[in-house]
Amino acid sequence: MKDKKEIQRLFKEGKKCSCEGAKLFFQGNHLSHNRVVFTCARNYGNAVQRNYSRRLSREAYRLMKHQLFSGYDIVVLIYPGKDEFQERLKQLQVLFKKAGLLRRTE
């Protein structure tokens, strides 16, 4: 997802879930894959910090995307805080579980 209008539509019309440090917006897209965007809150440091945070988020998503249901547009809004990989991975797991997008792994 790269179109600004699609992202704004998702902010307004999508379902929402939140946890400490992040918020998830999602909506079905009728495709066979997920489209994902990671964005930072307005008061999130400088460009270097924002880019690093998005890189951490993309890597955490990459590691867990096989555990998610397909066919959704997803926006993850990240708030300032600790930028540690394990913490970001836990945040995404909590968000996707709350949203019902995480498949049961047994």
Rank of each mutant, 00 (worst) to 15 (best):
R9M: 08
K15A: 09
K97P: 02
L24I: 07
D3H: 13
H30P: 05
Q91S: 04
D73P: 06
L10Y: 03
G81E: 00
E59Y: 06
M64R: 03
Q86K: 14
L56Q: 07
V37L: 06
F26A: 12
R104M: 10
K90Q: 14
R42I: 08
N43K: 15
R42L: 13
F96M: 05
R50N: 00
L56D: 01
V76E: 00
D73A: 01
L89W: 03
L31I: 11
K98V: 05
Q93A: 10
I74Y: 02
S18K: 12
R103H: 09
T39D: 03
R62E: 00
V36I: 15
K82Y: 04
V94S: 08
V75Y: 00
Q27C: 10
K23V: 14
T105H: 08
Q27L: 14
T39G: 09
C17D: 04
Y72H: 06
I7Y: 04
G28S: 15
K82V: 12
R55P: 00
R103Y: 05
F11S: 06
C17N: 11
K90E: 12
I74E: 06
G45C: 13
E59Q: 13
L63Y: 10
H66D: 14
C17W: 04
Y72L: 03
L102W: 12
K16W: 05
K65I: 08
S53G: 13
E106A: 09
K4S: 14
F25Q: 10
L56P: 01
R9G: 04
Q93C: 07
K12Q: 12
K23F: 05
A41D: 05
R88D: 00
Y44K: 11
K4C: 01
E13A: 12
K90W: 05
R9A: 09
Q27N: 13
L77A: 06
Q86Y: 11
E84N: 04
E87I: 14
I78N: 07
R50P: 10
G14S: 02
K82Q: 10
Y61R: 03
F96A: 02
Q91R: 14
L101G: 06
Q86S: 15
R103W: 02
T105Q: 15
S32E: 15
S53I: 04
H30Y: 12
Q49L: 15
L77P: 01
K2V: 09
K15V: 03
V94Q: 12
G71I: 09
L101Q: 11
E6S: 14
E20V: 09
R88Y: 03
K97T: 11
L101S: 06
L102V: 08
F38G: 02
S18N: 09
P80I: 13
R58K: 15
R104E: 13
R88S: 02
E106F: 07
Q49F: 08
M1P: 05
R55N: 03
F38E: 10
N34C: 11
N51M: 02
Q93S: 10
G71T: 04
R35F: 07
Y52S: 08
G100F: 00
K4P: 09
K90I: 04
N51Q: 06
L77N: 00
E84H: 08
Q91A: 04
M1L: 08
A22N: 09
Q86H: 14
L56S: 02
F69H: 13
K4I: 13
R50Q: 03
N51W: 07
K65Q: 15
H66G: 10
Y61W: 01
I78V: 14
D83I: 05
K16V: 14
L102P: 05
L24R: 04
L102Y: 12
L92Q: 14
L95C: 02
I78R: 05
Q93T: 13
